[in-house]
Structure formats: structure tokens, C-alpha cells
Design a protein around this nucleic acid. Structure first.
Lengths: 184, 184
DNA sequence: CCGCCGTGTTCGACTTGCCGAACGTCTGTT
DNA sequence: AACAGACGTTCGGCAAGTCGAACACGGCGG
């Protein structure tokens, strides 16, 4: 049997969202068409709920199902320009700084991109379900999936799937951008 | 019994991710410690899998569980600077343009922010679990939760919880920023 | 004080998901 | 041709999740 499924997290999540909505256990059970005995056991951390049950609860609570599986987070964090963990590409003058790493349960990374004109940076395909959003902060950039590149200027925004090879090239001046790499 | 859980979607997702990994049904069943009969039924769209089963499959497939529940997406989309659906704040010269709305199943909105010096923009608290990430593309900005504001310059990045009142104020010149409003 | 409605819990019966074995099929090898 | 190994499907038995009823506790009004 595979372990690793945090039953307590699910239990806590259900309870947390339920009280957040101001529902009583009885009330939520009625709204979600789930026996309150079942709900009671789930909040006690017992059992191994079916998807249908979890779906019904998530729907009644008005939250995505994944929010019931992953725990919450908080607080304020500042990363100054020029600081933070960075990765320098080998094929181009392309520096990616990690701003907000995908926390356990979340599904997106945030990068600050700094690129100099010259060689385009070629990125290998990512895992299925990856979508990238790029906001151009400064400069002119040619980017996008190979064969479907677009030329963007400061203030422009593009969304594309990251499951195919894609490039990033600063055209005539140093370019800055924000990259959201999202996992769906 | 509550309906609305797309069994076909789950079935298709499992099958899609399985073939993407190059696994056979037998192989995945062995890796995930799930009976291949169970897996066969799931891919056939029958049944109502338990969370434990789905978790084991997601882990073996190397994808977040939510990816097995929500369907895929695709394509390229460009929003030019100055275009796109926008909202003008009433308390300040603060223009927010929606770049990528939270699609069904996802949990984040992307906005381009353009603000002029003058009055600070005050935002009311958002729903519990909201986290905001702001990347400053141009100008100097004072922002953050009321009482914990920070002063940022171009290239700086900040993360804070959106569950309390928070402000955004361009200091001495027009400011541009990218806002990621995330739901956890 | 007692009944009433609300909370969340525990219990037995039913339903159903999970498992392992057996099955039919196809491919490549001896 | 016969066998071996892989594929995915179907079937019976066991385990477990779900349900509804009955339960204990606490606040409130008659």
C-alpha cells in the first residue's frame, strides 16, 4: 500500500474551509448531499474518501478540489532587483531569477528574466500541462513556441503552452520580463 | 447522489498521462501499487476512485493530483500593451488590465497594473487563501498590506497575503507592474 | 423543569471500490 | 506450429466507504 497521502491535511482542510464558510457540519453535509456521519469521520482524519465525496464537498464549499488537498501558506516576502537564486543559460545571455518557487501543492513558478541581445535562448519542452505567461517589462523580445514566435514590446503579454520547444530572444536592447510557469 | 464529477475527464486524464510517460496499463498498475483491474476500470470511465488510489496514480505519473482532475488547455494568446479588458480604480489613477483570468480549475489571475503618482490605491481584503505577487516593471512603488508597506523599484518583487487591506502607490513617476493574484 | 432544536458522534446494514486470478488477444520467438 | 510473454479485460470475494438512524451533549424558551 502506498503511503504519503496526508489524511490529517485533508481533514484539517475540510474543517478549515467549512468554518470559513460559516457552515456547521450538519449544514455542509446537507448542502453537499453527504451523510454527516461520513463528514464527521473525514474531519476526524479517518477513512479514505472517494473522489465523488470530495468533489461534492469542494463544490459545496466553493473551492477547487485541490485546495482541500494542499495546506495553506502566508506572510510577506521581498526580493530586490539583482538578488535571489538565479540560473544563467548556456546558449544565450539569459538570466532567470526564481522569485516564487512552486510550493508543495501549488502549481506555478515565478521568474524574473533578464536577457541581452545576441543568441536566442532555446528552452526544451516541459511536462505536459505546462503553460507559460510572459509579461514584457522592458525591451523588445521575440518569443513563443518554435514556429509560432511573436514579437512583443514593453507592456505586452503572451500566453503559450510550454509542452513544445520555445525560444526567448532580446532583439535590440537588454530585455526584462516576468515569467509565470504554470502547471495544470 | 451528487452529479457533476466528470468521470470521463478523469478517465481520459489518467490515460493521457499514462501514455505520455510511456507506461503500459500493467506497468503503471505495478508502479503505483494499484491492481490493474482497478486501473482498467478507471480508464474505462467506470467507478468512483478513492483519493488514495488517485494519489498513488498521480505520484507514479509524476503529476499533481489536480492535473488528473482538471482537463488540459492549449494555444497562444497575445495581449498588446494598452489593449485588453481594464478596470479603472475610483480612488486613484490606477488601471488594472486583466491578462489571464482564472480558468475553471486554475486559481490565479494575472493583471497588468499602470498607476500614476498621486493618491494611493486602497484594495479591500480578498477571500481567505489569496496571495498576491507583484513584479515592478517600471517606476517606484510603495505597496503591501496596510502597516507593512514596502518601497520597491523596477525589477523588485514582493509577495504578500491579500486577505488584509493593502495599498499600491506610484511614488514619483508613472509605474508599471505585473500582479499575480493567487488563490490557495 | 422539561421539551425542543441545534451541535457532532457512534452504530449496523448496505453498497461499492479494490484486489488477485483467470481469461482472450496479439506479437515475436524457437 | 507451439510456446512464451506482453497487452488489457472480466469475474468472484473481501475489505471498506457511505448512508441513515440512534445517540449524547449543550443552549434556549415555555
Amino acid at each position: 500500500m502506498v503511503e504519503g497521502l496526508p489524511r490529517e491535511v485533508i481533514a484539517a482542510s475540510i474543517h478549515r474551509e467549512r468554518v470559513r464558510c460559516g457552515y456547521s457540519l450538519t449544514e455542509l453535509a446537507r448542502l453537499a448531499n453527504v451523510a454527516k456521519s461520513t463528514l464527521s469521520q473525514l474531519e476526524a482524519g479517518a477513512g479514505n474518501p472517494s473522489l465523488e465525496t470530495m468533489w461534492a464537498l469542494a463544490t459545496a464549499l466553493g473551492v477547487p478540489l485541490s485546495q482541500l488537498i494542499a495546506p495553506p501558506r502566508a506572510s510577506v516576502d521581498v526580493i530586490r532587483a539583482g538578488s535571489g537564486p538565479s540560473v544563467q543559460a548556456t546558449d544565450a545571455d539569459y538570466l532567470a531569477t526564481l522569485l516564487a518557487a512552486c510550493p508543495p501543492g501549488a502549481r506555478r513558478d515565478l521568474f524574473r528574466i533578464a536577457a541581452e541581445p545576441g543568441q536566442p535562448h532555446l528552452a526544451a519542452p516541459h511536462a505536459a500541462g505546462t503553460v507559460e505567461h510572459v509579461y514584457i517589462a522592458a525591451g523588445r523580445v521575440r518569443l513563443g513556441p518554435v514556429g509560432a514566435e511573436e514579437t512583443l514590446e514593453a507592456g505586452d503579454f503572451i500566453t503559450y503552452t510550454g509542452t513544445e520547444p520555445h525560444t526567448f530572444e532580446a532583439l535590440d536592447s537588454p530585455a526584462h520580463a516576468l515569467l509565470v510557469s504554470e502547471q495544470r
